[in-house]
Design a protein around this nucleic acid. Sequence first.
DNA 1: CAGGTCTCCTGCTAGC
DNA 2: TGCTAGCAGGAGACCT
Length: 273
Amino acid sequence: MPELPEVETVRRALLKKLKGKQIKEITILHNNVFEKQDIEKVKQNIKNQTINDILRRGKWLEFVLDDYYLLSHLRMEGKYVYRNINDPIERHQLVLFNIDNDISLRYRDVRKFGKMYLIKKEDVGNSPISKLGLEPWDDNLDSSYLKEKYKRKNLPIKTVLLDQSIITGIGNIYADEILFLSKINPHKKAKDLETKELQSIIDNTKQVLDKAIDEKGTTIRSYTSEEGVKGNNQNNLYVHMREKEPCKLCKEAIVKEKIGGRGSYYCPNCQGH
DNA sequence: CAGGTCTCCTGCTAGC
DNA sequence: TGCTAGCAGGAGACCT
């Protein structure tokens, strides 16, 4: 499940291959990817647009075209692969991009959860990325920002860390890791966190995500940044997917519980009960 | 506004 | 061993 570090790794790989190239044509095999949009218009509007840059906002990829942004969210299983133009369409390939009449860039998504939006540059204020909160490295992300955002949040901090409108890019894996390093119990209500705990969350968010980017992402089930390329960060996980295994710091067994509907892992000793 | 529940989708797996 | 019901999960829609 791609979170910020995985999306960043994908972004860098795509940019290397596609920067400056032109989308000649798009084939949309599953309309739901472009939900709430006029498919015929998308096909027309994307024609002959150049990929000038590829940016990232939270877990969103942002292809900077001439007149449009193509926003792409991979959700659980989305990935991009390269084929030759006339290669047969394979199972789970939902969108095909003809790049320079040379490369067939294909969006593959087993669960069909991923979304794309082709939006005019001036309409970015009404797009999904306009609702995102701060990037983890944003100078405005400090304990007073979190205090303000959390003050009416009566939900477990585990749940609130996944709220993309506050800090963007954190998903289920890294939320567990951030709370472990911060020595905060995932059940603790966000509004009850003290200033130094908020600061710890900020510091550890940056540390965990930086490390994961260095490692080119965490491959647990299916994530690959490019076809056949796995990440290495799964070896650095302290708690996520380590149920009943000994805590790397205190040897206590790691616990798994459902919090806010998400599988959550923590050390009951290091992070309290 | 805050928060709970449902939905999407398919591969995987626990349990019989 | 083989089958199937149910789970997993990011984020938006909808409801209270």
